[in-house]
């Protein structure tokens, strides 16, 4: 496992508000390697979501660094391999990181298919036919090819989230970020979404998942991060985190959720 190269390196990441009285992130350091399925757990308000959203700069950190493929993406400019100063292209960066949200955030004024092909066509400049073909293949994979012409409101929560996942996949990202993807779902729909995520993990997709699904963390994750009060308190394999928790906060947390 140690031989895998690192994709994202997070160093002493901070997000402070109001003169540092509120510390959503307070010095988080970790490394995400290619093929990792990293699961971030912790009580609400612990900074898990802020951490995840900082990775693709939906939140602007106030300190520390995030190296993606060796480039510090928290700075506006960086030095390229020839030592030249280049402006960081955030849009280009975000294409490489697919994101799935708690509330799906499908575009309600477009059909499922249009949701899927918009970014591939407008950002990757694929022609409509090719984008359509890829989108339908992805939809087929999550069993929703027959709903391509439906509008998001006609879908159940679980279906919406499956569409949101393949919409992000359509951009062929290097890493997928999941921000509590099952928290807004009715209990009977959680399974279908987790199944899609398990499938992705099996294929070797690099994933960072903020979730309250401890079963998923234990079964699918290869590394688990425990956060509280903006700090990364414990990090380890699922066996270590769930079987032999060290930090009292983690022991306390697990006693409540398991």
């Amino acid at each position: 496992m140690e031989t895998r190269d690192s994709l994202i390196r997070v160093e002493d990441l901070k997000k402070h508000y109001k003169m540092g009285t509120i510390r959503a992130l307070d010095g988080v350091t970790t490394t995400i390697r290619r093929g990792d399925v990293m699961v971030v757990i912790g009580p609400s308000g612990s900074g898990k979501s802020t951490f995840l959203r900082s990775l693709n700069l939906l939140e602007e950190p106030t300190g520390g660094a995030i190296y993606f493929d060796g480039v510090d993406i928290t700075k506006k400019k960086y030095l390229d391999e020839n030592g030249k100063k280049v402006k960081l292209n955030v849009d280009e960066l975000r294409q490489k990181m697919g994101m799935v949200f708690q509330h799906f955030n499908l575009f309600p004024h477009m059909t499922i298919l249009d949701n899927m092909i918009l970014a591939p066509m407008k950002v990757k400049k694929l022609d409509r036919e090719e984008a359509r073909r890829k989108a339908l293949a992805l939809l087929d994979r999550v069993g929703l090819a027959d709903r391509a012409d439906a509008y998001p409101i006609q879908l159940s929560g679980g279906q919406k989230q499956r569409v949101a996942i393949v919409r992000a996949l359509a951009m062929e990202p290097e890493v997928m970020l999941f921000d509590e993807p099952t928290s807004a779902l009715d209990p009977e729909m959680v399974g279908e979404v987790l199944d899609v995520m398990k499938g992705l993990a099996k294929e070797g997709m690099t994933m960072v998942c903020v979730t309250h699904e401890m079963g998923f963390a234990r079964e699918v994750g290869n590394r688990v991060l425990f956060m509280a009060d903006g700090k990364l308190l414990e990090e380890g394999t699922p066996e270590a985190i769930f079987g032999n928790p060290q930090h009292p906060r983690l022991q306390d947390f697990l006693s409540k959720v398991l």
């Binding site: 849009d91 949200f101 970020l177």
Partner: peptide, 20 residues
Amino acid sequence: GQTEAARSLGLSQVQNLRYI
């Protein structure tokens, strides 16, 4: 969330305004 979804897909600010 609409803007966040659009931007996370790599759409630019202008594309987000225009299409979403």
